[in-house]
Design a protein around this nucleic acid. Structure first.
Lengths: 187, 187
DNA sequence: TTGTTAAACGGAACAAGGTTCCGTATCGTA
DNA sequence: TACGATACGGAACCTTGTTCCGTTTAACAA
């Protein structure tokens, strides 16, 4: 039962190089950076990228997995630390916005209907929507907000608002997200 | 002074065909449809497209100009027809959302930082931001909403919320825009 | 009508990026 | 050390945007 087809040493090495190179390239040129650039920076051929990460989304997910996990785990923690669930929700959304606006092009990729980004989309949604739902439910239960907004709609809306938010002087995504969360309140 | 370098008959004809073909193609395949497809549908070579419409944005603007103008003109009309400027604002935004969500891919194009879409961006902003500003000012003057939101930020936010809204069952852009406008209210 | 010319046309050619494929190199093991 | 499986590299191919130039055609004057 315990399969153990351990990967070859060179394959493990390359996977690491690729992750490093991708992280660096994403910072410098955004998550849409050419595959060839990433391969070159990692010192491998393009074939090697596709072997390890069949789609760009797989690579992006691998690079940001830790941060997404951290965000997901912050949800319950914030709920526990705040007396007002609405405040916890606002803080959590803020965390999510922080994450998105510092990853050049990520919000846009999340939105893309390109098949290659399907995995990315699915991962973010699977991991974060339940957390968002928890916060939303708590706020509804506390009578702080309206009860007719689906977690997935909120997540998508916030994601959309973050598109193109990086270093754009006359577009304040955080501000808009804040208005959205405010609009959620009853009364 | 009155220059009259009238265009050649074939050029005028082709421009019309192109506009028709583009409109049809945009409906069927979105505003990102391949240039070659549009050229083929119009029965002209790709060179002819570029001669008439140097960038894709020029073509998009030409196709949707009438509708954008109509939207712009609806602003003052709604203000005059409503006793509450906030209600007028909500209705106007609704018109804008209607326009965007029925044009597959347009909201995304509006957001693109690709140089080719610069003109599109500029046209929409030039034409609609002042109208939005007028509505916003009136609502502020009536004491209905907070006074610290720039028209351009609002327009961009609404545009962003409309990205990917076409036939997507679990994403209700209109709903989110509504929350945003609600969040604007004082109290 | 016909000749001349500037305007406009078509589409081949080129560039850029994604993706596939297969001959070659390397690893792990007997 | 030899051998099979695994992984690698990068050329080649596809799609889409964009440019360029030889050819066609509309406009107009003689």
């Amino acid at each position: 039962m315990t399969e153990k087809p351990r990967k070859r040493a060179d394959a493990q090495r390359n996977e690491l190089s690729l992750l490093d190179a991708a992280a660096a390239t994403f910072v410098a040129a955004g998550v849409d950076a050419p595959v060839r650039d990433i391969a070159a920076k990692a010192g491998v051929g393009v074939g090697t990228i596709y072997r390890h990460f069949p789609t760009r989304a797989d690579l992006i997910v691998a690079v940001y997995r830790h941060q997404v996990e951290a965000c997901a785990e912050a949800g319950p923690a914030l709920l526990a630390a705040n007396t007002s669930p609405h405040a916890a929700l606002a803080q959590w959304i803020d965390l999510f916005v922080d994450f998105l606006v510092t990853k050049h092009g990520l919000a846009g990729a999340l939105r893309s209907d390109n098949a290659a980004f399907q995995t990315l989309h699915a991962y973010f949604l699977d991991r974060l929507v339940p957390v968002c739902g928890q916060l939303l439910d708590a706020a509804v239960a506390a009578g702080e907000i309206r009860d007719d907004l689906q977690p997935i709609t909120l997540m998508r809306g916030v994601g959309n608002l973050c598109i193109g938010a990086e270093n754009n002087p006359d577009y304040d995504a955080r501000r808009l997200v804040d208005l959205l969360i405010t609009g959620l309140r009853l009364k």
